[in-house]
């Protein structure tokens, strides 16, 4: 607020001085600076205050594994993680090169013999873990959407289904991922025994747990959106004698789309939150496992590493949300009131 006030008085002073300059241009420049002051300055100010407070507080707390890291230490830790990733990558590339060499030599000496390819067995780096987490949450989210949206459409359009499923939704919705996970893990162990596993069991359990927890917002919002489709639009469908499928695809889904997307957005948010807990317990090699491993090894780096993870999780969660908003804008109609 302060900044904006100062800014405007300053620019008014400028306006008063040279009266000959083209006023439109000046007006524009003024509005731009004002807009910048309004949108950029407050977050920067907030960030500065936050970093200062963090540094102060961090310096004054001593834990069993050393001092609480300040912003600087966390930044360095993040840099170290990225560096480690680069190092691992070079090692992997070198390994592949050596293997190719050996393979060539082997085939030259013993032609026709089967060559056994070896996988590089380096440990996953922080960036690999982020990718794993993203894959897992995506799998769970897709699974949840595939169940929630059709079910929500059924719920919203057929009152009987709504009243039949209502109690289940009410009861299962508030269940924590930590309660689902053991059940899911046991069931996955029992049922997921393919000859050639495409996915790790830990991945499947985490994804299913994410799906189970992120199902509900999409389901509830979809059914709400479908149930509140404009009566007039449904009358149009009745007058035109549209078939059920045409009615659903041409009228119900498009008009419920904004709420369906709101639901999906909430679902993705919940899914991302749940994922970290699920990975911690199921040892799916993602961000959750990273946090858990850091906590277990209790080194002087622990806290700064976990803080890096916290920021990463927050940042990615925010990005996912933004991506959903962008997708919604792309898919839903302009929203012009056209009754």
């Amino acid at each position: 607020m302060m900044d904006v006030a100062l800014e405007s008085t300053a620019s008014e002073a400028v306006v008063a001085a040279p009266p000959a300059a083209p006023s439109a241009l000046r007006e524009r420049a003024r509005s731009v600076t004002r807009a910048v002051a309004r949108t950029v300055l407050p977050p920067l100010l907030g960030l500065a205050v936050f970093l200062a407070a963090w540094s102060l507080v961090a310096a004054s707390i001593e834990t069993s594994i050393g001092a609480v890291p300040g912003p600087r230490a966390v930044w360095d830790a993040a840099g170290a993680l990225v560096e480690e990733h680069a190092r691992e990558r070079t090692k992997a590339v070198e390994f592949e090169a050596r293997q190719a060499e050996r393979k060539e030599a082997f085939l030259r000496e013993q032609p026709g013999e089967p060559w056994i390819e070896r996988q590089y067995a380096g440990k996953p780096t922080y960036l690999d873990q982020i990718v794993t987490s993203l894959k897992t949450v995506f799998a769970g989210f897709v699974l949840a959407s595939l169940v929630a949206v059709p079910l929500g459409i059924l719920c919203g359009s057929i009152p009987l289904v709504q009243s039949a499923l209502g109690p289940f939704i009410q009861i299962f919705r508030p269940v924590s991922p930590l309660a689902w996970l053991p059940i899911v893990m046991i069931l996955v162990s029992a049922l997921y025994t393919p000859e050639e596993a495409w996915f790790e069991k830990s991945f499947v359990s985490s994804a299913i747990t994410v799906a189970l927890c992120s199902l509900w917002p999409a389901l509830i919002n979809t059914s709400l959106g479908v149930a509140s489709v404009d009566r007039d639009h449904l009358n149009v469908a009745r007058v035109l004698r549209l078939g059920w499928w045409t009615k659903v695809t041409k009228i119900i889904v498009p008009s419920a789309l904004p709420l369906i997307f709101t639901g999906l957005r909430l679902s993705l948010g919940v899914g991302w939150m749940v994922l970290i807990a699920a990975e911690m317990l199921s040892q799916n090699p993602g961000l959750g496992k990273f946090v858990w491993d850091m906590f277990q090894n209790g080194s002087s780096q622990t806290l700064s590493m976990i803080l890096v993870a916290v920021f990463t999780i927050g940042f990615i969660g925010c990005l996912l949300d933004r991506a959903m908003v962008a997708l919604e804008r792309l898919v839903t109609y302009g929203g012009a009131g056209a009754r």
Binding site: D230, D232, H233, N235, V236, V239, L240, R241, L242, G243, T246, K250, I251, P254, S255, T332, Y333, G334, G335, A336, G337, A338, R339
Partner: peptide, 22 residues
């Protein structure tokens, strides 16, 4: 109807075609 009740996500032609196709 009193309000035209057009489907906002379809063009004028598509709105008319909705019934015509049926």
């Amino acid at each position: 109807f009193q309000a035209p009740c057009l489907l906002a996500w379809m063009t004028a032609l598509a709105n008319v075609r909705l019934g015509v196709d049926e």
